[in-house]
Amino acid sequence: MKVNHQMVLSTQFRPHNNLGAVNEEELGAAYAPAPARVLKPGSTGNVIVGCMKNEAPYIVEWIAYHRAIGVDNFLIYTNDCSDGTDAVLGRLQEMGVIQHRNNDNWKGNSPQQYALNQAMKEPVIENAEWIIHIDVDEFMNVRTGNGTLEDFFAAVPDATNVAMTWRLFGHNGVTQLRDEFVIDQFDTCAPKYCPKPHTVWGFKTMFRNIGAYAKLSCHRPNKLAQPFEDKVKWVNGSGRDMTRDAAHNGWRSSKKNVGYDLLQLNHYALRSAESFLIKRQRGRALHVDRSIGINYWIRMDWSDFRDITIKRNIPACAPNTNG
């Protein structure tokens, strides 16, 4: 592996951070609290659909954060939880914050895909303006305007699909599970230009609910309907058109279409070392036949650079604020 690493450093695949214009190591002023969104009659607005298993410590922060940036509704599926995840989500449902569905009796190859298939039949998804499928270790980091989805959409008014490229954040030397914000504890990450390994530039998709795709999968919607061939426009996180590359397939960015200037998906796949061990015991949501071992840690534990741009959102997520 060391030899391969040295070889990569002398090729076009050499990782570096000289991409885009965002200063990621200087903390800007906190984003101003966004006013409450007013939805059109019958609309459920911007909706996240997510799948969870034993994620109790992280749920409240993740939901508070995304509510603060303009997510209006959440549809959360859980399966085989034993750590209080269902209880937390049940209480949030009673409060009207989310909708929770039990997915213990999933069928097929994975609980995640079964849940996504069921989600497409739910009114909260059918009536959404934008649909987003991300996990609880993924945070949408809007880096334009006041840091809200509304600001991002204003920058890409013609977009129907947004490839939100991962920025992998390492464990940052944190060994124990702490009662602190994930987005505050972990700020060391992969460089923006990092074509190898393939997992670094994976993306998740946010898409307008216009009926263009028949299926929602882990990373993206699939099965583009023929009448929409010339109606979809995919953009990257810098707002650049990448429709030709992504309209029909693909789940990772490439050297020619990667972009982070307006939006990136902060991916805290490991969090602390203790959290990683819990994740390893829990297993995967999609590839349930694959274990989470040391190779996963090596692929995901990036600490070469520092990005603190998301920390401008911390005041909006704290208790007793509009977050």
Rank of each mutant, 00 (worst) to 15 (best):
A273C: 08
A119H: 05
I210W: 01
Y296M: 00
M1E: 02
Q12L: 14
R312T: 00
M164Y: 04
R244C: 01
N105W: 11
R240T: 02
I183Q: 03
D307F: 00
F152Q: 04
V156E: 02
H66N: 13
A285W: 05
Y77A: 09
K215S: 10
N236F: 07
T44K: 13
T78F: 08
A163V: 07
V124H: 11
T165H: 12
E61S: 09
I308L: 03
I308A: 04
K204L: 07
P227Q: 07
R252A: 13
G237P: 08
N322G: 08
K233W: 01
F153K: 05
R280Y: 01
Y58M: 09
R280L: 00
Y114M: 06
M95A: 15
G90F: 06
D304Y: 09
M164R: 03
G250Q: 04
R271M: 12
T175K: 14
N79W: 13
C317M: 15
C218W: 10
W106K: 09
W201C: 09
N117A: 09
G211T: 06
S238F: 02
S43L: 07
L116M: 09
E24R: 05
E129V: 04
I63V: 15
I48T: 14
D158T: 00
C194L: 11
Q176D: 14
N320H: 13
A273F: 10
R271Q: 11
C218S: 14
L262F: 07
S272P: 11
P111W: 09
D158R: 00
F139W: 07
V88T: 11
F153S: 00
T205Q: 05
H100G: 04
M206F: 08
A190M: 13
S275A: 15
V3L: 08
L263I: 07
N54M: 13
A318N: 07
K121I: 04
A34P: 07
G283F: 02
F152Y: 08
L92A: 10
T175H: 12
G84Y: 10
A212Y: 03
T160K: 01
R244Q: 14
F207Q: 01
D151M: 00
A30D: 10
M140P: 14
Y213A: 00
F152I: 05
L286W: 15
T243P: 00
N4R: 04
V200A: 10
T144Y: 02
K196P: 05
P157Q: 01
G237S: 08
A36Y: 06
N161F: 02
H287I: 07
V60G: 00
I310N: 03
Q185E: 13
D289T: 12
N17H: 12
G293S: 05
K279M: 10
V162T: 02
E229Y: 05
W201N: 14
A214F: 00
G170C: 04
N320T: 05
N46S: 14
N127L: 08
D307C: 04
V71M: 12
E126N: 09
P197K: 06
G90S: 06
A68F: 07
Y58V: 09
N105F: 11
E61W: 05
D241G: 01
V3Q: 05
D179I: 11
E150M: 03
S43E: 02
G250M: 02
N295I: 01
V3I: 06
Q226S: 15
W166L: 07
E122M: 09
S217C: 12
E26N: 05
A64G: 06
P35K: 03
M300V: 02
I76Q: 10
S217Q: 11
W106I: 08
V174C: 11
P195K: 11
